[in-house]
Design a protein around this nucleic acid. Sequence first.
DNA 1: CCTTGAACTCAAGTTCACTTCAACTTGAAC
DNA 2: GTTCAAGTTGAAGTGAACTTGAGTTCAAGG
Lengths: 156, 156
Amino acid sequence: MDPRDLLPMGEITRRSGFAASAIRYYEAEGLIEADRSSGGQRRFERNVLRRLAFIRAASNVGLTIGEIRDELSRLPDNRTPTKADWHRISRHWRQRLDDQIAALERLKSGLDGCIGCGCLSLRSCAFSNPGDVLDQRGPGAGLLPDTLRRPHPTRR
Amino acid sequence: MDPRDLLPMGEITRRSGFAASAIRYYEAEGLIEADRSSGGQRRFERNVLRRLAFIRAASNVGLTIGEIRDELSRLPDNRTPTKADWHRISRHWRQRLDDQIAALERLKSGLDGCIGCGCLSLRSCAFSNPGDVLDQRGPGAGLLPDTLRRPHPTRR
DNA sequence: CCTTGAACTCAAGTTCACTTCAACTTGAAC
DNA sequence: GTTCAAGTTGAAGTGAACTTGAGTTCAAGG
């Protein structure tokens, strides 16, 4: 491939909006690939910009780096996603967003139910939902899906 | 106050569902208070259970510890929230939840708009939204409110 | 050749909300 | 008086997703 078609780091950061450190991180994590110049500097193929756009979109939807890697690994490396690829993926993402929205709606209606009573009772109020009323999967269990649970450290 | 009315740690963890370490953390952070036994063990007033229910609810809504501290500091210490307190607060929380829901809806319709085109274009696709199209407040700027932005480390 | 900005590496730091650990001390029951 | 579950402290660790810093090298223009 003609080396003039390869983009240096500066170009990538400018055009993708990611910091150089993030780009290097994504490479280290295997989300993107980079060639090297004779002197060891990164030279990116143009399709990396597409992958980065995909990464940003996925991360907006709330996917973790690991999940993004999985999705990307299902796209043959040098192919831009076909309509079929994109359709499958976007259905998946849409479902996630729907789940998150539904969870927030549930939370809101719990809240609405509490406005009248001012209770916040430990035993009966589903909104504040302590450990002995519902199960023990962590704060918010039963009301929030994993994707919205504030990522608690070392959740066993 | 009659010391028999004070609850030991075990009682609090059992009835609130929080781990002892979390309780101690909340005390250190100034979200709750504790008396001490002659030997130095924590003894909690009953209203602490209410505060803990409040903390769990707030954290379900996505408030940070700092924000929760602020809300709590507006409740006079030894008073359980009045209807007016609770009304004010729940209106605030409701607004947050509405914002979050709206943001996810926007994201979803961006996604829907992309399904047909399969584009994910860096220049024109609002969904993948790179830095040079919208502003630079961080990944997802313009689409996600701060409350849903995946908390990035060291966000300057 | 010289300068200068862009890029490199590797280790360590950051934030949040806790948890875990090690090494004690308390306190209620028997 | 002994036992032992329950409680204490302070320091360090956790995970995610990067960022920061120090010190070094590259590459393009003049």
